[in-house]
């Protein structure tokens, strides 16, 4: 049952290693605050973060809270990362001006919907608009469409954020995650 549910929610295959590689990168780069609105594609990474007492996991009511939170974290000398699905990017638009104006490092790791074998029509508009919206708000966007590309792309996203003081994003393609089908 759990496996069936995982497939419906398009969590990555349990054998896939890339969520664990992202977790390793968060540790290597000294991330201390993990702000998120859950996505099935991030479920394994979220479990790893929640099991780590050195990471403060903050579940948000809406993704823009995370942009604000990570600005506060940086004011206090802590690094953070924002995890969300593509629909959540739309909730962040105006708040991204905070990171741009203050020159705040803001790495985001976005699991994509609405682009590869999507079942739900409501996921398509924001999924298609995600890279354009992020770039329109000054974010450096990189994509990973194969499992082996995820870790290097996330590492580049972390380095770009903390070395050059700006919002950055890795988009993890829906092809990597699998499509939610509801059995269709």
């Amino acid at each position: 049952m759990a496996q069936q549910r995982d497939e419906l929610e398009m969590a990555p295959d349990a054998a896939e290693a890339w969520p664990d590689r992202i977790y390793d990168l968060l540790k290597e780069h000294g991330i201390r605050q993990v702000a998120l609105v859950p996505d099935a594609g991030h479920s394994r990474l979220i479990r790893r973060c929640e099991a780590d007492n050195e990471l403060r996991v903050v579940t948000l009511t809406t993704e823009e809270e995370g942009v604000a939170q990570l600005f506060g974290a940086w004011l206090g000398g802590q690094k953070g990362v924002l995890l969300m699905q593509s629909s959540g990017v739309g909730n962040c638009i105006n708040m991204l001006s905070v990171a741009v104006a203050h020159r705040t490092p803001l790495p985001m790791i976005v699991t994509m919907r609405g682009e590869f074998g999507e079942f739900n029509p409501f996921q398509v508009p924001m999924g298609q608009a995600t890279p354009a919206v992020l770039e329109a708000m000054g974010t450096l966007v990189r994509r990973a469409d194969r499992p082996e590309d995820v870790a290097p792309t996330v590492e580049a996203t972390l380095r770009l954020a903390f070395n050059t003081y700006r919002p950055t994003a890795t988009l993890i393609g829906q092809r990597v995650l699998g499509a939610k089908t509801f059995g269709k």
Binding site: R32, R56, E65, A68, G72, W74, G76, V98
Partner: peptide, 17 residues
């Protein structure tokens, strides 16, 4: 700017310090 974000900025700062 960042209307609606002040309290969450405080949370991030309070957790960091």
């Amino acid at each position: 700017g960042g209307m609606g974000g002040a309290a969450m900025m405080g949370l991030g700062l309070a957790l960091a310090q």
